[in-house]
Design a protein around this nucleic acid. Sequence first.
DNA 1: AGAATAAAAGACATACATGTCTTAAATTGG
DNA 2: CCAATTTAAGACATGTATGTCTTTTATTCT
Lengths: 144, 144
Amino acid sequence: MSLISKSCEYGLRATLYIAARRGDEYVSIGDIARDLDISFHFLTKILQKLTQHGILKSSRGPSGGVALARPVKSVSLLDVVLAIEDHELFTACVLGLKECSESTPCPLHAQWARERARIQRMFRGTTLDKLAKPIADGTLRLAN
Amino acid sequence: MSLISKSCEYGLRATLYIAARRGDEYVSIGDIARDLDISFHFLTKILQKLTQHGILKSSRGPSGGVALARPVKSVSLLDVVLAIEDHELFTACVLGLKECSESTPCPLHAQWARERARIQRMFRGTTLDKLAKPIADGTLRLAN
DNA sequence: AGAATAAAAGACATACATGTCTTAAATTGG
DNA sequence: CCAATTTAAGACATGTATGTCTTTTATTCT
């Protein structure tokens, strides 16, 4: 398996792509799909979720597209992940037990709880503005 | 998504179950499936993989079943995970890029590489013997 | 040897994620 | 108003993980 779904990967890459292009100006989904080599229609549905969650705003018609609905600095990767992924990512038992908590732990509960909390902090602590510049200037890339 | 697949969850729980029953004596897959509430035929296929990887040994016929092929102390959870899961779990890019490494990193490479290494260490450092006792005496459980 | 037991193997079915395609609705510019 | 553009919405197809069922093979016990 993988930590996050393909939908989530696409959503994160697209959001970072938008942020790297100033964020406040509309970018067409077709452009994003082409540059990031993602299926256009599939990406459209993913970005719709982000729009519905208030992370992106959209505009139809010529010169339309999607843009960030909030300041780059105020959007974390966790916001994007939670808008697309099931919330259970950071709460579910690593062994799949329904009831797994401090009081009724599975054999790996303590160790896994620590790791997933770290991962969540990693996503929460990374805001779009921190990555936008190196992406914009080509230091970091969003596609192969 | 989840960190590991259901197959992997089942494989880990079954292996821990076997370890908690001394490990060296054969346990029928039917018993494991019943106690852990896992589909019998599905579990059979998963445990076959573990047998093929030399983690379990099996015996057909009456009083047969599966048992650990090696001492409990020498089997780590990572051994089980890697026998079932794709090896890419601990190497793949979190954003799904094919080429993602120190030299050509994605925007999250550095941070994710650190986390996935920790998770791998968690699985590698946890051997069956460390969990067998608390499971055997009921302190920790493998099913709801 | 024969019957019972249990893993091995593989066909088949189901669920869900992913991907493709078509139509509708909204916006822009001439 | 009309044509072009672009998101929205939903039907449909494909792929993969998961789950079920049947048959085969090996082993044990009588």
